[in-house]
Design a protein around this nucleic acid. Structure first.
Lengths: 143, 143
DNA sequence: TTCTATTTTGTAATAATTACAATTTAGTTT
DNA sequence: AAACTAAATTGTAATTATTACAAAATAGAA
């Protein structure tokens, strides 16, 4: 059940610990780009000794090893994602949902720009998602 | 001296106030993508009655009017910029500097993606800037 | 089984931002 | 020019996300 995550940690010569396995599993099963609080409060139920600081620490070490990535898209908190093939993100300013945007962009290949060494590329799109637009329409029709 | 900023505010039917004029002038003269604290502490010297909350409020209203834009690139604080023609940003993980990146990208035109209404596009590049790379080399040579 | 560096844990601190109520003021009306 | 009012400014007090730190626990090596 956790073999997949054990392997990921082993491949990066990281120690196999419960918090790390649980966090990896959570991110792998929930591609909603959760924040620390969501990860913490969900896992805390199954694993009561879990500490919030451990979630912060674990995510940090997973990030350093490029296993997960953090998104600064919301502006108030970091959101986390299993680091898959390069893709961009859309955040809905109405409901807060963060959605994957799979478009190609010539700049996504981390090309060096003006002598700067680019190690990470993030494309953020902000607006109103399809669902929330539908809700808006409904509200107008009723009013 | 402030005519330019008075005009900007008038064009958006915003009240002409000292904090707004000072903040606009500061952003226009410092394209370093400052955070609230930098804007506040600098302006506080010339304008001692200025409140930090006012800086937050003013930036918020300037942002709503699309006069300035906020960047979530740093992950710990918002950085502000006079909203010029669309461009991207690079942040140096060594020195923290945020630099403009003027590259074209087919996705920058706020095209609707999968039915979502896109109102804002931000391209963030993270890595080590040219200057810091030079410093790194110097340090290795000396060590 | 022992050992040790690493990790986890909990609490306390820090930093950015927001809430809110009182005071002031820009711009309008008289 | 004086009065008026909605909006803006101000200061303080919360709130929220994150980091610092030290003690206890533990993974993996010896």
């Amino acid at each position: 059940m956790y073999e997949k995550y054990v392997k990921i940690l082993k491949d990066h010569t990281l120690k196999i610990t419960s918090p790390r396995l649980e966090i990896l599993k959570y991110l792998d099963e929930h591609h909603t780009h959760p924040n620390v609080e969501e990860i913490y409060s969900t896992l805390k139920k199954k694993y009561p000794s879990l500490s919030r600081t451990t979630v912060y620490n674990s995510l940090e070490i997973l990030k350093k090893n490029r296993i997960v990535q953090s998104l600064t898209i919301s502006g108030s908190e970091l959101r986390y994602d299993i680091d898959e093939r390069l893709h961009h993100h859309f955040i809905c300013t109405h409901c807060g949902a963060i959605l994957d945007i799979s478009i190609s962009c010539p700049n996504m290949d981390k090309t060096i720009q003006g002598g700067h060494r680019v190690e990470e590329v993030q494309g953020y799109f902000k607006g109103v998602c399809k669902k929330c637009q539908t809700k808006e329409k409904g509200m107008n029709n009723n009013g």
